[in-house]
Design a binder for these strands. Sequence first.
DNA 1: TTGAAAGCGCTAACAG
DNA 2: CTGTTAGCGCTTTCAA
Lengths: 344, 344
Amino acid sequence: MTTSIKDVARAAGVSPATVSRALGKGPVSEALRAQVLEAVRATGYRPNLAARRLRSQESGTIGLVLADIGNPFFTGVARAVEAAAYEAGLRVLLCNTDEDPAREAAYLALMQEERVAGLILAPTRITAEGLAEAPPAMPVVLIDRPGPPGLFDSVLLDNAGASAALVDHLVAQGYRRIAGLFGQTSGTGVERAEGYRAAMARHGLAPALRFVLPQAEAAETGFAALCQEGQPEAMIASNSLLLMGLLRAARGAGLRIPTDLALAGFDNEPWTGLVEPGVTVIEQPLEAIGRQAMALLFERLRTPAAPIRKVMLSGRAVLRGSTASVRARLHNSTKTPPPSSFTL
Amino acid sequence: MTTSIKDVARAAGVSPATVSRALGKGPVSEALRAQVLEAVRATGYRPNLAARRLRSQESGTIGLVLADIGNPFFTGVARAVEAAAYEAGLRVLLCNTDEDPAREAAYLALMQEERVAGLILAPTRITAEGLAEAPPAMPVVLIDRPGPPGLFDSVLLDNAGASAALVDHLVAQGYRRIAGLFGQTSGTGVERAEGYRAAMARHGLAPALRFVLPQAEAAETGFAALCQEGQPEAMIASNSLLLMGLLRAARGAGLRIPTDLALAGFDNEPWTGLVEPGVTVIEQPLEAIGRQAMALLFERLRTPAAPIRKVMLSGRAVLRGSTASVRARLHNSTKTPPPSSFTL
DNA sequence: TTGAAAGCGCTAACAG
DNA sequence: CTGTTAGCGCTTTCAA
């Protein structure tokens, strides 16, 4: 049997209510507070959160439902969310769906049962669609991935713009046959594909793209498929897992980067700068995404009827050797260009 | 106001107790169960977990307290733990301490307040020491990092053996001046350092080692320090963040791997195979560590008085170009040797 | 098999 | 400022 507030009250010679007040913010005389604190120490008392939540009808918790805890993008965002929540005196319930809509549904149900105050969610496409018909009971902020338009607050990257920036950069470097590989489980993959399509069209170039599962293995299959449809000079991947898969596949095929194939993608993970000749990527502002999501959630909790807000953040292009210019390729320069970056 | 079990009972024309039984495993007639399920659907009822836990005195939850959610080692273990917990019908409360003993203490307190059934913990050295005097109220399984001997179930890598294997391999490849960089916040760093020391002594070689914070930046400082004390031919890092820092620093210093400096470390992360010429590492069995930890926890919950168990798992050495033999270096071979591996 | 009643541990409302 | 009382939503006796 664990010690309860009654035990502490008895030990301190006060009522349970006084113990509660001494531990919380109620008005208590300094003398009694000291007695209570001493009794807490003596008994080793730890309040029972289940009881507290049941009585106060507040969970003091927000939910964070992510698609892939192995993806540094999401762990980075999770860090920021947790820091912001901590500063606000809230706990974070973190769940990992592994891109599985069934698990996603189970976790959304769990969040209701936990009575979390609000939810930050990176939904798969399937869940995102269902969100319109069966919205969760609590405020929701979508991150990274779009949902049904106008229904939920959201924090998104300017995905179309970012894809277009990559295409523009590749074209400026002299590439023409640019293929794209995009994740099929997320709305983000779709948006990035659209940006790619639009940019290719703007340059009068023919798009060549494929949607695959967002895994390195799937990327290797996609690589083969893209190669068959007309010898691309460059490839774009819509996330870092796919990017890694493309790099591996290119290596496996004996292609040299960027001499035989240029490469660009999303997320400035450490390895993209470590691998020779460095991989050009769009860096996403992880910290800002997490903070902004929390800010939107707080404001929604404060004023539930406020209009829906969609915040679009810009990425930063980090240019590296994997997209060195065609001229540099022709001169057979093996030197890595100095990395540079610009904000979209 | 959210709908409660009473609302469902009223809608179904039964008592709250019957609703509870219909949703749980109590004996209910099929007719009533159907009525209840229909009423649940109609009302959109979601049980309140706080109330359920308070009444049943079971949280149905285990705690997982990790040192660094950005470290793929921990996310890998977390995946396995979560999968095993899910199969057992338990939830996982995941917390990230960022190697901060203060946060660690706060989370341990939280776990008590949540009344989790048990705890899986990767403690910092400071917390590990304190564990002996103030043990948590629930069963604890330590992972990755040792605690006070004989007090807690634990799942550890054979750290000393793994370090020794790296030293042996380097010596066999012809290296003599082998330096080591170890994380200072974890007992694991200490054990790996001891294994390194012992192996160096066995080979009659002088050790040169430093303890630093387990961060890539700290590794770059440590690199400089190690270089000053006598031009190492090879370096070992006790985790992947340090390993990455060493690689960066070596590159920054214009050193070529392994021609000017051989490199080896822990954790077979994707980038270690992607970076030229490939980095030799000890791969840890993430899945097995997580599963084994859950198994120990379950058995402890079943038989609390059973003797303490310490499970040591072996790593797998993945040999890559970063530790190519001295002979190969002298012949100036730039070919990457075919990667190979062996179990310790 | 079902319902009524009690109570898990806590805090909020109300007296004093 | 402090104590008494009630009740959050649920499950679990105990009767029927």
